[in-house]
Simulated scan of single mutants.
Amino acid sequence: MTPWISTTALAVAGVGSVTSAIYAALVVTAAQRFGRRRRKALNEPARYTPPLSVLKPLHGAEPELERNLRGFFTQAYAGSYELLFCARYESDAGLAIARKLATEYPETRARILTCGEPRFPNPKMYSLSVMADAATAEILVTSDADAQVAPDHLQRLAQELRDPEIDLAFSLYLAQADAPSLNLALDALGKSVEMNAGVLVADMLAGTDFSLGVTVIQRRDVFARAGGFADLGTYWAEDFVLGNRLAKQGRGVRISTHVIGLTVSAASARQSFENQLRWAQSTRRSRPLGHFGTGLTFAAPFALLGCAVGFARGNLLTALLFLAAALLQRAVLAGSVLRALGSTMAWRGAMLYSLRDLYGFLIWLGSYLPADTRYHGTQFRIMPDGRLLPPEPRP
């Protein structure tokens, strides 16, 4: 390694280590801010109980689906609520589970719908449009199949719309792998820490001008205000677009203090990587400048570069300082986020997060590859504006 290359590499490692440390400090501050807000909300009475329609799009019997759906049938909600489930066909295995649970809990109002083949490029959005048309309440809760909820989920979530100025609120989540696997553990850490850290910092610095779609509570008219189901259904990250358009109109969008669980289903290392890559490619198109800047928030790649230069120069102290600094700041960052979300195992995630940080950097690099994605058996391409290019019609 020539002196010029060595010096340049060390400078890059130093700059990256500083920017990642600054980001870690922002995350810790934002996490503490959210944690205080969450604790305050938990100590307040939850008395707002408007009628709710819960919309659950389904596609097959995903792992842990019965457990996840059961949580919605057993809600301790003081008001009235209905559950709507929708899949493409009556024979869908996910609908079979919903029917079984509806029989077990006849006191919970549940309806089973089918929508046929999706008419929008985004199949989830088409399913939601069918359920929204059938819903009876003026406040809708949209919830993905992998959402895990406690009995007070609806009671706590509904409080976000007590303020008439708030039109939409979304929940952050703690992800948990449903099988013992390193790649699933890293995936869960990415969803719990990496994703939520970025959301909390963005909210602290610029306010909430987006939404995340695992669980969202919103007034019925927000979809029309944001362009309608058909237009939103042309985007892959329709949840982000919905929240962003509402915020630009001056409508109230906020992060709910109610945190949910999220199932990370068993998958091979390749499938897990592809799933995470799909969302990173979507984020790159939703917020291109912010996503590009994310490259400077990772600590592990810069630490490894600094460590390599230190060893090449025979300076063991430099190498160890780079590694120790990265391990420490990543542990503090992860622990702060997990504690703010209410995790009881924050220390375990903190110890593993440096490895996730390196894995996340590789996903970030991969997000600049051509954005082909597969969802529920259909191949799409995510276009530069975030819209989905539908597959060519079959002859």
Results as ranks from 00 to 15, higher is better:
Pro3Asn: 09
Trp4His: 11
Thr7Gly: 15
Ala9Asn: 14
Ala9Pro: 13
Val12Leu: 13
Ala13Gln: 13
Val15Met: 11
Ala24Cys: 12
Leu26Pro: 10
Val28Thr: 04
Thr29Ala: 11
Arg33Ser: 01
Arg36Ala: 05
Arg36Asn: 04
Arg39Glu: 13
Leu42Cys: 07
Asn43Met: 15
Glu44Leu: 04
Leu52Asn: 00
Lys56Met: 14
His59Asn: 14
Gly60Phe: 03
Ala61Tyr: 02
Ala61Asn: 03
Glu64Ile: 03
Glu64Cys: 12
Leu65Phe: 03
Arg70Asn: 08
Phe73Tyr: 13
Thr74Ser: 06
Gln75Arg: 09
Tyr77Gly: 09
Gly79Asn: 06
Tyr81Gln: 05
Glu82Trp: 15
Leu84Ser: 01
Ser91Ala: 09
Asp92Cys: 10
Ala93Asp: 12
Gly94His: 00
Ala102Glu: 08
Glu104Gly: 13
Glu107Ile: 12
Arg111Trp: 14
Pro121His: 10
Leu128Met: 12
Thr136His: 14
Thr136Gln: 06
Ala137Glu: 07
Glu138Thr: 09
Ile139Trp: 03
Gln148Tyr: 15
Val149Arg: 02
His153Leu: 12
Gln155Asn: 15
Gln155Asp: 13
Arg156Thr: 14
Leu157Arg: 14
Glu160Thr: 12
Pro164His: 10
Ile166Gly: 15
Asp167Leu: 14
Leu168Ile: 07
Ala169Pro: 11
Ala169Thr: 10
Phe170Val: 14
Ser171Thr: 14
Leu172Val: 13
Asn183Phe: 10
Val193Asn: 12
Val199Tyr: 07
Val201Gly: 12
Ala202Trp: 09
Gly207Cys: 15
Thr208Pro: 06
Thr215Asp: 11
Arg219Pro: 13
Phe223Lys: 00
Phe229Val: 02
Leu232Met: 08
Gly233Leu: 00
Glu238Thr: 13
Asp239Gly: 04
Leu242Cys: 03
Asn244Met: 15
Ala247Tyr: 01
Gly250Asn: 06
Gly252Asp: 00
Ser256Pro: 04
Leu262Ala: 07
Leu262Trp: 07
Leu262His: 14
Ser265Lys: 01
Ala267Asp: 09
Ala267Met: 12
Ala269Asn: 12
Ser272Leu: 01
Ser272Gly: 13
Glu274Val: 08
Leu277Asp: 02
Ser286Arg: 00
Pro288Val: 00
Leu289Phe: 03
Gly290Trp: 03
Phe292Glu: 06
Gly293Lys: 02
Thr294Met: 01
Ala299Arg: 02
Ala308Asp: 11
Val309Thr: 05
Val309Leu: 06
Leu317Tyr: 11
Ala319Val: 05
Leu320Thr: 11
Leu327Asp: 15
Leu333Trp: 07
Ala334Arg: 04
Leu341Trp: 04
Leu341Gln: 00
Gly342Asn: 08
Ser343Cys: 08
Gly349Glu: 08
Gly349Arg: 02
Ala350Arg: 01
Met351Glu: 07
Leu352Gln: 08
Arg356His: 08
Arg356Trp: 08
Arg356Ser: 09
Arg356Ala: 10
Tyr359Trp: 12
Gly366Cys: 06
Pro370Tyr: 05
Pro370Ile: 04
Ala371Met: 02
Asp372Ile: 10
Gly377Cys: 08
Phe380Met: 04
Pro384Asp: 09
Asp385Ala: 08
Arg387Cys: 14
Leu389Thr: 01
